[in-house]
Nucleic acid binder design. Structure first.
Lengths: 204, 204
DNA sequence: CACTGTGAATTCCTTCACAGCG
DNA sequence: CGCTGTGAAGGAATTCACAGTG
């Protein structure tokens, strides 16, 4: 396909494809058609074919997509073929839940550091990591950490984000209910549970 | 404006507007222009004007939107002018974090019940509520609970969802990394932190 | 005059329909 | 033949440009 800008929405669906292909890998499936994959993911077959085709022709006509190699392809497109180290900032209840959540490893993430500003918490261990003083955030650059998960109170979020960016962080997943002011080169994904829940009553 | 279908995306932005207007209320601002609001929310002014105009003409030409009454309007559009009771299913680390998160109250949510299947946890209190046995989920209907937050392991999510729906739940916010099979009348919002994080390395 | 409200234009994304290939 | 890959069509959301109004 001649080059066309890859839609943002396609990128957002890629991890879904990867999860599906990972599952198929563990089921030892050899091939999967867009039809069958669509049923699993509740998408339309052409959507899947178009999405994947943005990155090249992975499929075999008449048969489908080879599970093994397509999984690898998607992993390398998303740069998840190498272990991605992430720092977790905030070791409160939410941070603790995240630190002990094993779902990240499927995508090759490694929560390589946990920071907090509470003297009580520093030095304690959660999810197998020792909580460090937030003042040591500057060390992430030298530790090969480019991503951060922010699970701090809204008031602290902007300050933490500033420190993280100064320390060389390139992408942030924020769970604080506020907008972060960041340079354009930094990719920020923001999730606010209350806001997501806020749309539900409308549909009642 | 003659009737036009309200875009899904507009609905998704409404809680953002509500949060902004709530803040403006507490700052005792009388009016706000789409221009200024757009700067706060990092949106374009016409976007905001169009979104709000789907629900009627709330603004005053030459001045802007009256903070107090627009906030009330949005609250009633989203059905957040009345207290919305929600059940939390799963009192693990994530559930505990959610139970003690105060951000929901800004939108008028009340976590009115917490369920878990772990005998160890039943009877204990988190976030001011007593954890109930998941077998009592059927009681939500009679307790005026129409919404649920699902924070259980992926394996348990579908079963819980089925029980919730049988009990009369109309909307679900799921934090489990899996697709829920539900009747079309049920609104489901699904958030998978690992998948959200999964897009970040792509942009590095 | 400064703002909102809104058709029209544009951009973006999805779906279709079928050509192309194993 | 059965599937993928893709240009073209269709649909949805955003942005523009300006008419309308307190």
């Amino acid at each position: 396909m001649k080059y066309r800008k890859i839609p943002e929405e396609t990128i957002r669906r890629m991890p879904r494809y990867l999860r599906a292909f990972s599952t198929l890998q563990s089921e030892n499936q050899g091939y999967i058609s867009s039809q069958l994959l669509a049923e699993r993911l509740h998408l339309n077959p052409p959507q899947i074919r178009k999405d994947l085709s943005y990155f090249g022709a992975f499929g075999t006509r008449g048969i489908g997509y080879p599970v093994q190699s397509t999984a690898e392809q998607i992993r390398s497109i998303l740069k998840l073929n190498i272990t991605q180290r992430a720092a977790l900032v905030g070791a409160g209840r939410l941070g603790t839940a995240i630190a002990s959540y094993h779902g990240f490893s499927l995508f090759g993430f490694d929560i390589a550091a946990v920071f907090d500003n509470d003297r009580q918490k520093i030095g304690r261990r959660i999810g197998g990591r020792t909580i460090e003083d937030v003042s040591r955030i500057g060390s992430v650059g030298s530790r090969g950490i480019q991503l951060a998960i922010l699970a701090v109170p809204a008031e602290a979020a902007q300050t933490c984000a500033d420190q993280l960016i100064k320390a060389g962080i390139k992408g942030i997943l924020s769970l604080s209910p506020c907008y972060l002011e960041t340079p354009k080169r930094i990719k920020v994904i923001s999730i606010d549970l209350a806001m997501e829940l806020g749309t539900l009553p409308y549909y009642l």
